[in-house]
Design a protein around this nucleic acid. Structure first.
Lengths: 226, 226
DNA sequence: TATAAAGTGTGATTAATATCACATAATCTA
DNA sequence: TAGATTATGTGATATTAATCACACTTTATA
């Protein structure tokens, strides 16, 4: 559970490392590397999906239309696969992916990918392990968030971002407050109030885009209390 | 996405079918079939996990301690695997499983299981597909529930149970109201009130344990509205 | 079968947060 | 750089559902 690099965790590229150089070349030669600007849609819910997406550089959000609004399911930073469930689980994308920073994505043909799974047991096994870790992580967040109040979830999210995406307590926040609301499942206004509150209590510092966690212990306390 | 047989969907045994008779015998001979009574704990969060659990008969709940209460992550009916993520994702169980009805579970040694993945690409591939479907289903429920109010989630849950577990609109409800509260993420009292309300409006009929969906269209409407 | 334990129903109250309304600030874009 | 668009801050109000309290009912168990 240590290799994760996103909120609610996409899996890392460790599976890919089990391929030999030759095998990896086959993948490289048969896949398109595409660059996306911040804000660009990488793939869209409802569209046909025939490729596995592998994030080489950048940060993306995985999101899905809910009954009344958009829900951000996870945020994933490179390197990670992020299109496997939607490609192998269904012919039609069940969620969208959008670049939060300039990003590059390798689209691997799903038949090619399937071939490697068939032929390379170790590769398949690592994929399975990573999908499992992913699921455990979903469960963790799912169990937490349904029992916490807004300040607790926001605190948890900030800590998680610092630890799993940026590896520092000071970073440029990749989301608007509306998006953060869609991630934690609350309203934009509530986010604004919670952040103001954290800020006026000197728990965090933020000016527009940059977040600086000043009192991590208190933030953790708020997160644990709910 | 059609093969599912649980709420928020565990995967079916289709992967196992790709094994030859001989291969399947090896698994059968090296795994223990254990019977559980309603209410028995099958495995427990925090315990060491060295087996993959395959539900042969019965219904189980997968649950996890949250910060303030228990959260039911999914309900799974046979036939299905339900211990893969916790076995391959971590050495320690990240969630518990408890029998909701008398059940029988086949515990397959994880090394043996891993062996089959290594050797049988088709088996591995089907497992991957099913894990992916699982994840998409989690996403679906996750996106829905965070945006619906209690009556909407309860309506959705009842419909889902009727369709995916019992295949009929009249069934013995496998959960207490407290458990249903832990599943949908609300309080026991709210569940009681919502069910009373549905009942007095003749949308459902229920006497203790038996649920009968009388007006499915209205229930669906409530579910969609939120 | 008596007694305990677990589960359920329902009113009153409280608390959290959604919603509405609008002001202000930042940022795109022609 | 002007004007438009998008993002944010904040008060007032409404609403949903949590919590508390307790009666009642069903189910276990000695």
């Amino acid at each position: 559970m240590e290799n994760h690099n996103c909120i609610n965790c996409s899996f890392k590229s460790s599976a890919a490392k089990t391929l030999s150089k030759e095998e990896f070349k086959v993948i490289e030669n048969n896949s398109a590397l595409v660059f996306f600007k911040k804000g660009d849609i990488i793939f869209k819910q409802g569209a046909l999906s025939t490729n596995v997406a592998y994030l080489r550089t950048g940060i993306v959000k995985i999101h899905k239309r809910g009954p009344s609004r958009e829900k951000i399911l996870r945020i994933s930073k490179s390197p990670s696969y992020f299109g496997i469930p939607t490609t192998f689980g269904n012919k039609i994308n069940q969620y969208s992916a959008t670049a939060l920073e300039d990003s590059s994505v390798c689209f691997i043909d799903s038949n090619l990918f399937q071939n490697f799974i068939f032929k390379n047991g170790e590769f398949a096994y690592k994929l399975i392990v990573e999908l499992c870790e992913n699921e455990l992580n979903d469960y963790e967040r799912y169990a937490n968030q349904s029992q916490k109040q807004v300040p607790g979830i926001v605190a948890e999210t900030l800590i998680c971002m610092a630890d799993k995406i940026f590896n520092t307590d000071r970073f440029n926040f990749p989301l608007t407050q509306s998006e953060l609301a869609d991630l934690v499942g609350t309203s934009r206004e509530s986010i604004s109030r919670v952040l103001s509150d954290f800020s006026s209590n000197k728990i965090i510092e933020f000016n527009g885009k940059e977040i600086h966690i000043l009192k991590r212990d208190i933030l953790e306390q708020i997160s644990e209390k709910g």
